[in-house]
Amino acid sequence: MTDEAFRSLYGQYRVPLFRFAYRLTGSAPVAEDIVHDCFVGLFRGGYKAERASQRTYLYAAIRNLSRKHHRDSGREDELCDVVDQVQDPLGTVVSQETSEEVRRAVEALPLLQREVLVLFEYEELPLDEIAKIVDAELAAVKSRLHRARERLRKALIPAMKGMTK
């Protein structure tokens, strides 16, 4: 890859990839480490054009590095998307900071649901591309997204009521 091509790719994706990593890990310094490692992998020849588009490759790399971070920090139990107990991070207390409420509600999602939700709602990627990124069937992606939305609706009802007033 030429310097020019690398610069172009880095300029195009550094912010969206950082946002994605930040929303998966909840930490800006960790997200920067992950984006750094992702691009180091890219210029060491990790990308194979015949396998996926560059965008799919980069998002998948961020997703895998974030999962590695979760494993290394002993948060792998967050991965499970079967347990569907509705946590209410807000309790009955309505936070003054809606943004903070949303952050906490999204971070309370199991990782498999969170990554699908972030890719769809924040990065606005199509479902078939999300399926490639998370290496899952399309039906599984739809199911995870549905469960994530249900949980968020229940967790964010106070905030949603505030929005519609």
């Binding site: 943004s99 924040y122 939305r149 609706r153 964010l156 905030a159």
Partner: peptide, 9 residues
């Protein structure tokens, strides 16, 4: 409605 709330973060 949910999307609008999520975008606040």
């Amino acid at each position: 409605e949910l999307r609008r709330v999520l975008k606040l973060w």
